[in-house]
Amino acid sequence: MKNTDLIKLPFSKNNPILVQVLGVCSCLAVTAQLKPAFVMAISVTVVVALANLIISLMRNTIPPRIRIIVQLVVVSTLVVLVDQVLKAYVYDVSKQLSVFVGLIITNCIVMGRLEAFAMVQKPWPSLLDGIGNGLGYSVILIVLGAVRELFGSGSLWGFPVMEKLGLYRIGYENNGLMIMPPMALILVGLIIWWHRSKNKELCEQ
């Protein structure tokens, strides 16, 4: 596989959410609004990339029988470390991030990529794979966050779009279902449907 593919493929043909179906839990939890979705997207990208790099460097020393535990220790140390540093130097960012710390550690994409890629690949491709998958995840999160905030709360990034357009005065109402997690699952389903219809080779026979 070429290095550019490592960045490019996760956007579409090997998207972590749409194709690998990893990281769906956090994708349902944090996409009620655009801003937290964005913060989560960036955090996961950074963590997957770094964890991939570190695990790849360690890969030949890790005993297979305890590899999951080793991965977990590395990921959680990394996340807590980053959170501590942010808390000391960029307190506001850390406040945004604090609720995500647990969600990042348990994010299936992180473990999935470590298991499937970093354990058997060299550090540089692993780093690229981490960045690629993080960004692929980010795209879906941001789309979901935008749609759910716009139709669920009538705003985008906190800006009251629907109110400014004057839609409430003509009887428009926000869709309460949009901000509930099940709606995110339905939206992901719709995106997967659309994505598969564009990429027939992904469909299982």
């Binding site: 305890i66 807590v80 470390l81 000391a88």
Partner: peptide, 30 residues
């Protein structure tokens, strides 16, 4: 396996402790 996991956990704990202790004053101030 035992030695590996022990060392790994101790190293991780050490890193976190050092970071946590050294950053505590500025965190509390914040």
């Amino acid at each position: 396996i035992f030695v590996y996991s022990a060392v790994l956990v101790v190293v991780a704990a050490l890193i976190l402790t050092v970071v946590s202790v050294s950053l505590k004053p500025s965190q509390e101030k914040n």
